[in-house]
Amino acid sequence: MLFRDKNRRSYAFTQLLKKYREKVYWLIRRMVQNHEDANDLTQEVFIKIWRKIDDFRGESKLFTWIYRISVNMAISFLNKSNTNQYLPDAVFENITSSQVDHSPQEDGGEILKKLHKCVRNLPEKQQLVFQLRYFEELSYEEIAEITNTSVGALKANYHHAVKKIEHYLFISD
C-alpha cells in the first residue's frame, strides 16, 4: 500500500513538473537573465516542491504556491549575488539617450531586450508586479497571494513601473 502511494506520489510530481517546468523556468529566467542560473534555480524550486509538498495546505492555489517559491528563490539569489541594482526614481527619470539607443529602425527584439534591462533596474516590488502582470498575465489577486501585498499597493506599483519603463524606452531621448 505504501509502495503504491509512493508510485502515485512520483507520478503526480512528474505531471506537476511537466505542467510547470517552463512557466517556472521563464519566470526565473526573466528575473535572473542568465540561462545557467535560471536552470539551477528551476531545479532547486522543484526539489523544494518535492520535499515540501506535504506542507502545502491548499489554502492558496497550487500555482501561486509554486510561483511564490520561485519568486522568493530568484530574489534571494539576486540579493546574494548582488546583481539587483535598483535605480532610485530620480536617477531612473534622468537616464539620458547616451545610455539608451532609441534608433527608429530598431526591431521588437531590441526593444524587448531594453525592456528587460529596464525591468531589472526597477525597485523589487515594482519589478515583481511588472513581471507577474505583464509577462505572466496574472490577476492582481493572484499576484497579491504570491507577493503577500495588497491589491491596491500592487496596482500603484504596476502603474509606477509602466510609467518608468515608458520613460526609459520612449521619452528620455
Partner: peptide, 26 residues
C-alpha cells in the same frame, strides 16, 4: 511592443531539465 520571448534555450532543454529534476527527487 510584441512580448514574444527573445531569450532562447538549448534544443530539448526542458526534457533534460525534467530528467535532471526527477533524478534528484523521485
Amino acid at each position: 511592443i510584441d512580448k514574444k520571448e527573445n531569450y532562447d534555450v538549448p534544443e530539448g532543454y526542458f526534457d533534460q531539465l525534467s530528467e535532471e529534476i526527477l533524478r534528484k527527487t523521485v
